[in-house]
Design a binder for these strands. Structure first.
Length: 152
DNA sequence: GCCAACGTTGGC
DNA sequence: GCCAACGTTGGC
């Protein structure tokens, strides 16, 4: 089983939104970055666990845990001209973008902030805290996962 | 709202 | 294939 971190702007979709959604399950649509897509498409497996990260907000940080409950399939929002993430270069016949479904596991008892994560020498290899990082999906090692949960 | 750091696009 | 221009991300 692998570990991941996925970012979402809480003004778009927050951990509270995920907790409220039917079955507490949602598709992770809208990823339009090849590196992130490749990880979802090729590496994410059912049962992998994921940190839910709030980005571009007042207190950026890890706020919860979720789990992969359906492996990759085409991101159909790319084919809807009305959708914010519409991509005319993707089609149902030849999809360019993929997504997985994820299920809410739990909220953390507190936000583990980016500021706090940056201050931990144990996490210097984590893509999230590396300079200029913009990846919206990234792998987390088992050691990093346990360390971060130990901060809670 | 600013802006640095990226990724993508497209002319050549 | 290079690279300038442009668009986006996301912390601050």
């Amino acid at each position: 089983m692998k570990y991941w971190l996925m970012k979402s702007e809480p003004s778009e979709f927050s951990i509270d939104d995920l907790e409220r959604v039917p079955n507490q399950t949602e598709h992770w649509d809208g990823v339009r970055n090849y590196q992130a897509r490749n990880m979802m498409r090729d590496e994410m497996k059912i049962g992998d666990t994921i940190f839910f990260y709030h980005s571009n907000c007042k207190e950026p940080g890890i706020v919860g845990i979720m789990q992969v409950c359906r492996e990759s399939y085409p991101d159909f929002t790319a084919h809807d001209p009305e959708d914010k993430h519409f991509d005319p270069k993707s089609s149902a016949d030849n999809p360019r973008w993929f997504m997985v479904d994820i299920r809410f596991i739990r909220k953390l008892s507190r936000t583990i902030s980016l500021r706090e994560l940056k201050a931990c020498s144990e996490l210097h290899e984590l893509a999230l805290v590396r300079r200029g990082n913009r990846l919206s999906i990234m792998p987390v090692s088992h050691e990093q996962w346990d360390f971060i949960l130990g901060l809670e």
